Computed example of a mutant assay.
Amino acid sequence: MYAKAVLGLLPRSRPAELPSTVLTTAITVDRAHLARYNEVCGFRHGDILPATYPHVLGFAAMMRLMTGWDFPFPVVGLVHIANRITQVRPIRADEPLELSVHAADLRPHRRGRQFDIVMTGTVDGEEVWREVSTNLRRGSSPSTVSAGGDASTESESERGSERELPAAQAFWRVARSDADAYAEVSGDRNPIHTSYLGARLLGFPRPIAHGMWTKARLLAALAGHLPESFTVDVAFKAPILLPAKVGFAVPDGRDLIVFGKRPHLVGTLR
């Protein structure tokens, strides 16, 4: 898939619209893999899937979709700017989970164009989980982009990002080894996370933490305080350059923030 991603940088004619493809995968949870994911992200071990774990289970399907020849953008250079997960109910590791992935809502953004990768999880035909990952393609925002909002449109979590930094409720030290471990367990081996050369080629002085590791680590810190049904909506702001020390806070039980000298992740829990 990464070879296809690199080949996607070669100049060629691309479609103007997102594909209508829907990829569906039947999932059998590997308990050893789940245990390793829990260890890497800070979750307690157990038979209930963390709310961020289906993202990892569907990552290969997401990559297949975005590296297809009918996709309008090369996957290299896309920026994951926001992620919303809704857990309808807890999912047990022994349940027959089915994941479906499709692209939706190509629309302008003030820095280019954005679109969503939507993943749904069902058990026996009942939707139990949903994720919307918003990705940005930097560049001009032509008038031919599909309708879906103007270029200034931002998620609720993005609009709430301009705030005074709160007092940290805890601090995390994030090492290079954390990025390597998450890359291995998630399959997301983007070199901006694992290689100094890869990071520098894409404009970062050092490797950066995975945004979905940061979100998972935040939810792990809230273990025991989350309801069975919830939505957690975050925007990824400044990257976490590794190694780093970051603070996190949930100042009012609803707003979420991970920050250093400035916010790295902001969001809401409802």
Rank of each mutant, 00 (worst) to 15 (best):
A3E: 14
K4I: 07
V6S: 05
L7N: 05
L7I: 09
G8C: 02
L10S: 07
L18R: 04
S20R: 15
V22S: 09
T24S: 15
T24Q: 13
T25H: 12
A26M: 11
I27M: 02
A32K: 14
L34F: 12
A35E: 12
E39F: 09
V40Y: 05
C41G: 10
G42W: 07
G42N: 10
H45M: 10
A51Y: 09
A51N: 12
T52P: 06
T52H: 04
H55V: 06
H55D: 11
A60V: 13
A60H: 13
M62V: 15
M62I: 14
L65K: 01
M66L: 13
M66T: 15
G68M: 03
G68T: 03
P72Q: 07
F73Q: 08
F73E: 09
G77H: 01
G77W: 01
H80E: 11
R84D: 08
R89T: 11
P90C: 11
I91K: 11
D94S: 13
E95K: 12
P96I: 08
H102C: 14
A104T: 11
L106K: 14
R107D: 10
H109T: 10
R111P: 05
Q114N: 06
Q114W: 08
F115H: 07
F115W: 03
F115T: 05
D116K: 06
I117W: 02
V118S: 12
V123S: 02
D124E: 15
E126C: 08
E126I: 09
W129Q: 07
W129F: 08
R130E: 12
E131L: 08
V132P: 04
R137N: 09
R137C: 15
R137T: 05
P142L: 04
T144A: 10
T144L: 03
V145L: 11
G149P: 00
G149V: 08
E156G: 15
R159K: 11
A167R: 13
A167G: 08
A168R: 06
Q169A: 15
Q169F: 10
A170W: 14
F171Y: 14
V174E: 06
S177F: 07
S177E: 15
D178C: 08
A179D: 04
D180W: 13
A181E: 09
S186L: 00
S186N: 01
S186W: 03
I192R: 05
H193D: 07
T194S: 13
T194Q: 08
S195A: 14
S195G: 06
S195E: 12
G198Q: 12
I208P: 01
G211F: 02
M212L: 13
T214E: 03
T214C: 12
A220V: 00
A221F: 11
L222A: 13
L226H: 06
P227H: 02
E228D: 15
F230S: 00
V232L: 05
D233C: 05
V234S: 00
V234W: 06
F236G: 01
P239K: 03
L241Y: 14
L242Q: 02
G247H: 02
L256G: 03
I257E: 01
G260K: 01
G260M: 00
G260Y: 01
K261M: 05
R262N: 07
P263M: 07
H264T: 04
H264Q: 09
G267M: 01
L269G: 02
